[in-house]
């Protein structure tokens, strides 16, 4: 799982812990505060391969500089905190900063948690699997 997926899908308190670890060890500043925006969601129709726009999605984005490295955070929804943490984490992991070895295990741990959650949900959903019998006669 890419670290940006962990930023978008992970628990906010865990992301805060990761960001705190970074901020407590290397210089960090916010270059642009979290701000709202939107992305246009592009899709390709699988039948005729026609690319088209499905609609827009609200995002919050932020930029940070960590230890001389630029980082970008962008997440779906009105999530300023998550965008800030995302920018800080991206600055470290996207640039393979010296903090990366400390941050990677924390990201991996949260990635495991997300996958466990998804597995748990999918196991519950699987219980709605149906096999209708065709009536005879």
């Amino acid at each position: 799982m890419h670290y940006s997926q962990v930023i978008a899908e992970g628990r906010i308190e865990k992301l805060r812990d990761i960001a705190d670890t970074i901020v407590n060890h290397v210089p960090c500043r916010i270059i642009s505060n979290p701000s709202p925006g939107m992305v246009m969601v592009k899709h390709t129709d699988p039948l005729e391969k026609t690319p088209f726009y499905l609609g827009e999605a609200f995002v919050t984005q932020c930029e940070a500089e960590v230890d001389g490295c630029m980082g970008y955070g962008c997440v779906l929804g009105d999530e300023p905190e998550r965008a800030v943490f995302g920018a800080i984490i991206d600055a470290v992991l996207g640039n393979k900063n010296r903090m990366a070895p400390s941050v990677n295990p924390m990201i991996e741990e949260e990635a495991r948690f997300i996958k466990d959650q998804w597995t748990r949900e999918s196991r519950q959903i699987s219980k709605t699997k149906v096999n209708f019998d065709v009536k005879k006669g």
Partner: peptide
């Protein structure tokens, strides 16, 4: 509008 996403 920030950008387009990659196709889903």
């Amino acid at each position: 509008r920030v950008c387009d996403t990659y196709p889903l």
